[in-house]
């Protein structure tokens, strides 16, 4: 069951972050971003769907992707705290995306050779998507970091707020090591290498984090996730057994 748990953790990361991005749709700072944000959300939700479907089959208890997404409560969700952080302003959203994509890019690259065909397949698609997310979010972090006085202050504030959540990216999940998925801890070098030039160009300082925030993998979340799930699951749960 360790692989099931590990795939579920990954699926939760992608769905929750995809959901957060989708909240922007129709409310972005410019029309181009009203197209780009749903685009990235669709990438993440697409990955989540394949992973949930895979997890359901690994579990073999008759649950499907929707049962996994819509019928678990916040204590059962295993996503990283970073993924559930509220959108905040555009600087927060772009930085959160950069942090996540800069981790997932080397992670999926390492997963390309997984013995699990579904995981290798997801990785093949996700590697390209993450490269785009890094480029898109990274360019915004640079523009905002080295833009106006206001945007620079907002960008630095986003770094201060979100950086404590990045340590959790490198923790092995509650599921522990599984052979079919890459080890997370070894991604730190690649993650830092992606971020450093972007931070330098954006004139941003990478802060020291004495007390990292973790807990998502054991279902210990912030207060926002419960609201996200209550909204997301409301229609599905109001009509048990219905097909949509």
């Amino acid at each position: 069951m360790a692989l099931f748990e590990a795939v579920l953790e990954l699926a939760d990361d992608h769905l929750v972050l995809g959901h957060r991005l989708s909240e922007w749709c129709g409310h972005a700072p410019m029309l181009e971003e009203d197209l780009a944000l749903p685009n990235m959300a669709l990438d993440l939700i697409g990955t989540a769907r394949t992973l949930y479907d895979h997890a359901a089959k690994l579990e073999g208890r008759g649950r499907d992707e929707d049962a996994l997404a819509y019928l678990r409560g916040e204590r059962e969700y295993r996503n990283l705290l970073l993924c559930e952080r509220p959108n905040g302003d555009f600087a927060h959203t772009m930085l959160r995306q950069l942090y996540f994509a800069a981790f997932m890019q080397p992670y999926w690259t390492a997963a390309l050779g997984s013995a699990d065909e579904t995981i290798a397949g997801v990785a093949g698609k996700a590697v390209k998507e993450m490269a785009y997310h890094i480029r898109h979010a990274g360019e915004w972090v640079i523009r905002l970091g080295d833009g106006t006085e206001e945007s620079a202050a907002r960008m630095q504030e986003a770094v201060v707020e979100l950086h404590p959540y990045t340590g959790e990216l490198f923790e092995e999940g509650a599921a522990g090591d599984v052979a079919e998925l890459p080890s997370r801890a070894v991604m730190r070098g690649a993650w830092t290498a992606t971020l450093q030039p972007i931070f330098a160009e954006a004139l941003l300082q990478m802060p020291e984090v004495p007390y990292p925030q973790t807990g998502g993998r054991s279902g210990l979340h912030g207060e926002g996730l419960g609201h996200l799930l209550a909204e997301m699951q409301s229609v599905y749960r109001a009509h048990p057994g219905a097909s949509w």
Partner: peptide
């Protein structure tokens, strides 16, 4: 867009998101 966050299946959620994006 009012229903993207409440779409009752992941398939519908993705399709609606893509649709609203098309409108944009």
């Amino acid at each position: 867009g009012n229903w993207i966050t409440r779409a009752p299946s992941l398939r519908r959620k993705a399709a609606l998101l893509a649709k609203v994006q098309d409108e944009g």
